[in-house]
């Protein structure tokens, strides 16, 4: 209450001066000067405000949705399963595992969901195996743990992220174009029906029978192990989906009009079976006819 009294005093004083002014100093030049001064002041204030809003740094926090809890959970998963080879700060451990800074959540999803990580042992390359129970993408807990781990890795250096669609939504509408792109970009290693093939020094391109749509997509994005990367600017998301449509339509015994794929690798097995079974049957029938005559 005590602080308000002086203010009232000054306000009363100002109004008294203002009331007196028109009577004693009524000259147009003075008024004009005052108005000009007031305008200049307000203009300066306004431009300072505009300049401030234009140049002031944006706050670094509160731009992403709050996933700190997910990241914290992911760190827990990381500490349980990955830390011994990839290091406490994802910097990697010499002769054990590479740095994960910048690999992104697409790579994390692919490696963990296919069971390649955690690695069973050091060898030519990581192989697909049954995922650990708490990292199994088919169970609710496992899927959440993979999400959390992916968010944790993504929070440390960013990188390619998995697509937002899931499952069949990732299959494109043009498997024929997908087939053409697959034969150009993928078939040299994975074979034209996704049977896989050998690489140098014990490494190999795996077959694609068990690969889900998300796994194929994240593999193209992140280029696991010796596979090259296929960025969205090199192979567009639509083209990736067409490739997935082709792969799912030819692998795992699909698109098999002859009744049996015979390994799915073309004329070698087909010719051998036709020769052995066909010629064998004809010889057998000829012998049988001769024996009965």
């Amino acid at each position: 209450m005590t602080t308000t009294t002086p203010r009232r005093h000054t306000a009363a004083l100002r109004s008294r001066i203002a009331a007196r002014a028109p009577q004693s100093l009524r000259t147009s030049s003075k008024l004009r000067r005052r108005i000009a001064g007031a305008l200049a002041l307000s203009l300066a204030l306004l431009s300072a405000g505009v300049l401030y809003t234009a140049f002031a740094p944006r706050p670094q926090i509160a731009i992403a949705q709050d996933d700190s809890q997910l990241v914290a959970q992911g760190q827990q998963v990381f500490n349980n399963h990955c830390i011994s080879c990839h290091g406490a700060n994802l910097q990697g451990v010499t002769d054990r595992g590479p740095s994960l800074i910048g690999v992104g959540s697409a790579a994390t999803y692919f490696q963990v969901a296919t069971g390649r990580m955690p690695l069973a042992r050091q060898e030519a390359q990581a192989i697909r195996k049954a995922p650990l129970h708490d990292l199994d993408p088919k169970t609710g807990d496992g899927a959440r743990n993979i999400d959390a781990l992916s968010a944790f890795v993504q929070a440390n250096g960013g990188g390619p992220t998995p697509p937002l669609e899931k499952g069949e939504a990732l299959r494109g509408s043009d498997p024929a174009r997908g087939g053409q792109l697959f034969r150009l970009n993928c078939a040299s290693c994975h074979n034209f029906t996704g049977r896989g093939g050998a690489l140098s020094s014990g490494k190999f391109a795996p077959h694609l029978d068990e690969s889900t749509e998300e796994q194929i997509y994240t593999a193209m994005l992140s280029g696991p192990q010796n596979m090259p990367h296929f960025s969205d600017r090199q192979v567009s998301p639509e083209e990736k989906k067409d490739i997935i449509a082709y792969v799912t339509s030819v692998t795992d015994g699909n698109n098999n009009p002859g009744g049996h794929p015979l390994g799915g690798f073309g004329p070698v097995s087909e010719g051998l079976i036709a020769f052995l079974v066909g010629i064998g049957a004809m010889v057998g029938i000829a012998v049988w006819l001769g024996a009965k005559a």
């Binding site: 390619p160 150009l184 970009n185 280029g223 090259p228 990367h229 296929f230 960025s231 600017r233 090199q234």
Partner: peptide
């Protein structure tokens, strides 16, 4: 274009 390929990529 040079920005089209990620590092460790190959294109025909």
């Amino acid at each position: 274009r040079p920005e089209d390929l990620d590092a460790a990529s190959m294109e025909t």
